[in-house]
């Protein structure tokens, strides 16, 4: 049913797509963490004006699909004079979508840190930024680990829509080969295998980290 010759021929093509998917996926996730930390700090400290901007951003991006966001950035924005390359668009799109999810997650982690932590740190003579980076943020991260891992997995899965803005990722490679040679079974088989390679380690690592974080917090 599966032709092994075809598979060996296709593997290099899929490896290229694999690296592109991984590259864009993780750069986008990195960007989403950055956006998430900054935006959740803005919400946590109730910075005037900026808080409102962050709230609108989070609602806008949480309630629209990534595909629509990508199309808007890739095809819509050039009209206004912003030209973004397909790769840049993928990273920015994934970063913005992920940023809105990360913001919500990290914010609820920040709010869960008891105020006595801030007060004690200030009493010990730490400056405001020091308190945020060294006391509040690490604790917020450890309480929101399960939700953060879920976000990372969600974002890695979302990378499958990049083929729509003609990035040569895994999905694009599979679609292309199905269209050209009609080797549907082999292409789909390789597609599934490569997505398993990307996501299964993250899923397993997530379970392990979650257990460790739980142990730290609840002691069991």
């Amino acid at each position: 049913m599966i032709d092994t010759d075809v598979i060996t021929n296709y593997i290099p093509l899929f490896v290229d797509g694999f690296f592109l998917t991984v590259k864009i996926g993780w750069l986008g996730i990195l960007l989403s963490f950055l956006i998430g930390i900054i935006a959740s700090a803005v919400l946590h400290f109730k910075v005037p004006v900026l808080s409102a901007v962050v709230k609108v951003y989070v609602e806008l991006f949480r309630n629209t699909p990534l595909l629509v966001q990508l199309f808007f950035i890739y095809y819509g924005l050039p009209v206004l004079g912003f030209h973004v390359s397909a790769e840049g668009c993928g990273i920015v799109g994934l970063g913005l979508l992920g940023g809105s999810y990360m913001t919500e997650t990290i914010r609820s982690g920040l709010d869960a840190v008891p105020p006595s932590q801030t007060e004690s740190a200030i009493a010990l003579g730490m400056s405001r930024p020091q308190v945020f980076w060294m006391i509040i943020l690490p604790q917020a991260f450890s309480t929101s680990v399960p939700a953060l891992v879920a976000n990372v997995i969600f974002l890695l899965k979302e990378t499958s829509v990049f083929s729509a803005i003609s990035l040569m990722d895994l999905m694009f490679t599979a679609k292309d080969l199905i269209g050209l040679y009609y080797d549907t079974t082999e292409s789909l088989f390789l597609l599934v295998v490569f997505y398993i390679i990307i996501l299964l380690p993250v899923s397993i690592a997530g379970t392990v980290i979650e257990k460790k974080a739980r142990y730290k917090i609840f002691g069991s």
């Binding site: 829509v161 599979a174 679609k175 549907t184 789909l188 599934v192 997505y195 398993i196 996501l199 899923s203």
Partner: peptide, 14 residues
Amino acid sequence: IMPQMVLLFIVFFG
């Protein structure tokens, strides 16, 4: 772990 898009392709093409 499987993106919905992959599942769609499996059902529609596969």
